[in-house]
Amino acid sequence: MDDEFDYEIDPEDLPQGTPTRGELGAPSVMVNDLHVTYKVVGARKRGATPVKDNMLRKFLRRGKNLTGGYTEIKAVQGVSFTARHGESIGVIGTNGSGKSTLLKAIAGLLQPSQGEIYVSGIPSLLGVSAVLMRDLTGERNIMIGGLALGLTRQEVEDRFDEIVEFSGLGDAIYLPMKTYSAGMGARLRFAISTAATPDVLMVDEALATGDAAFRERSRERIDEIRQHAGTVFIVAHSLASIKAMCTRVIWMDKGVIKMDGDPQKVTAAYRKYTKDSATK
């Protein structure tokens, strides 16, 4: 599954204050009893201890291991919630708790094994691996990304300077994207995806790779999207940045929602839980 970043963030780098809380609008995302099961093709669960078998069985088992088969992983097991226009929701939880899977399912990238998801507009998911087309320049990627989002060529050209400025890439925009660092790619993807103000934006760890200046710019952009009645989901391991950017926090644990509500309360409970399990 995805790599997870766990960056230390200096307190002075953090955007100050808490996000402004406006009136909550109508629902923008509704998730009802969502279950997601991964099928990992070509990997088979094996017992930790070898089984004693006769030669033929051994041979057969070995053959089985070589020719695919699959393992099932239950990543999300019964999640229900409603998000509203103008909310920014932080999703926290330990590695492998199902945060990224939940967002992928909302973005329509995973087939739920059970349950329903309803969204308004086209949800946009920003992940850690942010490269669209490796071999092409950042400039070309902006054009391709913009056109794919349904903008016209003219609209992309009009917004081009703004996108480049926001990404802070400067002349690197004319280099192939494979030469970018993870942070540079994430910045450009964030700039492209927010160029056409999305109804539902999901940011999965993509901000962790940015530097302090970019985090501040992206916090402002996220606030802007919320004020335009968008909904933003943010997965991050830094509780401080979650508190700075979110109006609500969902805590995922082993594929279910453990707590959902006020950022201060949920992060406090989560911190206590992680401390307890660390000292165990």
């Binding site: 109508a26 629902p27 923008s28 995302v29 509704m30 009802n32 009893d33 399912a105 909302i106 973005a107 329509g108 087939q111 739920p112 329903e116 998801i117 309803y118 969204v119 308004s120 949800p123």
Partner: peptide, 19 residues
């Protein structure tokens, strides 16, 4: 009944099913 009401609610708010 719950499921029906959720899909109805979603439709009321202009939401569409994913995928």
């Amino acid at each position: 009944q719950l499921a029906v009401s959720i899909s109805e609610q979603a439709a009321q708010h202009g939401l569409h099913p994913v995928g």
